[in-house]
Structures are given as C-alpha cells and as structure tokens.
C-alpha cells in the first residue's frame, strides 16, 4: 500500500471526504486508463472512472484493509465497465483520436497516430472477456493472480483468455500490416 494510504482509507471510512479525494487523485489516472482501454471512448471512460470512485467509497467498508487497494479499485472499475458495455452495447469503434502526440516531427507523429489507431481498433474488436484481462495486464500491470481476483475468475481462465486475446490481436494486426517495429 502506498505511503499513508491505509490512513487515508481509514479517514475516509470515518467519513472524511477529503481523504477520499486524495485517494481519487492518486488513482484516477490508472482507473481512467483501464476504463479507456476497456470502453475505448474517452467520454464513457470518464463516466466509468467517476462511477468507480463513487461506488468504491460507498462500499469502502467491504474492502479488506490488509489487501492491495489498487487491485480492489481496479476490480470495481472493470465491473463498472463490464456493466456499461452490457447496458449500452458499446462495441463501436474508436472515434476520438484527434490528439495523441505533442511536438516532434509531424510525419512521424502522423505515422505514430495511425499505428496507435490501428492497434486501438484491433483491441476494440476483441470480446470484452478478452479485452478486460488484456487491459489489466498491459496497462495496469497486474499479475495473473491479481487479474483473477479482480475479475472473479480462476487464474487458469485468465491465462487462457490472455493467450487467446493476444493470438487474436496478433492475427488482426498482421492482417493490417502492423509489424513490431515502429
């Protein structure tokens, strides 16, 4: 747990909303990144991050203080996204890729933007069941055990889904002519 994190959580449990604000400040980038990776749309990811922090605060008494807070909040984020996908059937391809890099060679930027867009679209083509462990693994850096805990799946299932997700992704990217070298 990060420095002073347990104390912040305990203060939040006592109803100190500023302490919860500090928790949000610490985790918002990671939570937003996960939501964006799963949902693929910045506006929806923003809503999901907001909902995840509100739900986490409301359910804070269920958090086991001796466990890693990051895994818990990421699990809530993944669940919020899953419900959002289920509810809204958000499988539309990415629409917001107008500003991905700042500064540098414009030609290089454009090439990088296109490449990022292709990969992003490839990720969006994956089923949510594959996309969620993929994002938790490669954006949030969770290990298999933590992903299993976050998604409520056996560790073996997580490994299988990650393997299939990567195979599918590799296939899509190779068809689009994307290679491993920039």
């Amino acid at each position: 747990m990060g420095e002073g994190e347990l104390e912040l959580i305990q203060r939040a449990l006592h109803g100190d909303v500023d302490a919860w604000g500090e928790i949000v400040r610490r985790y918002k980038d990671a939570v937003f990144g996960i939501a964006l990776g799963i949902l693929g749309n910045p506006a929806d990811a923003e809503d999901a991050a907001h909902d995840a922090f509100i739900r986490a605060y409301q359910g804070l008494h269920t958090f086991h203080l001796e466990k890693r807070f990051s895994t818990w909040i990421f699990a809530i984020t993944a669940n919020v996204c899953k419900n959002k996908l289920r509810r809204e059937r958000l499988f539309a391809p990415l629409k917001h890729l107008s500003r991905l890099t700042k500064g540098g060679d414009p030609a290089k930027q454009l090439a990088q933007q296109e490449r990022t867009q292709i990969i992003r679209e490839a990720i969006d083509q994956l089923k949510p069941a594959y996309k969620m462990p993929l994002v938790l693994r490669y954006y949030a850096d969770l290990d298999y055990k933590e992903i299993a805990e976050a998604l409520g799946l056996p560790e073996g299932t997580v490994k299988t889904r990650l393997h299939r997700a990567k195979s599918e992704l590799k296939h899509i990217l190779e068809q689009k002519g994307v290679t491993g070298h920039a």
Binding site: L36, I119, R120, Y138, G180
Partner: peptide, 11 residues
C-alpha cells in the same frame, strides 16, 4: 510492448 505503448499513449 505495442499494447502497453498504445494503451498508455491513448490514456
């Protein structure tokens, strides 16, 4: 590494 880079850059 492509996945990490893309997800990070996009976020």
């Amino acid at each position: 590494s492509l996945l990490k880079e893309t997800l990070t850059r996009y976020a």
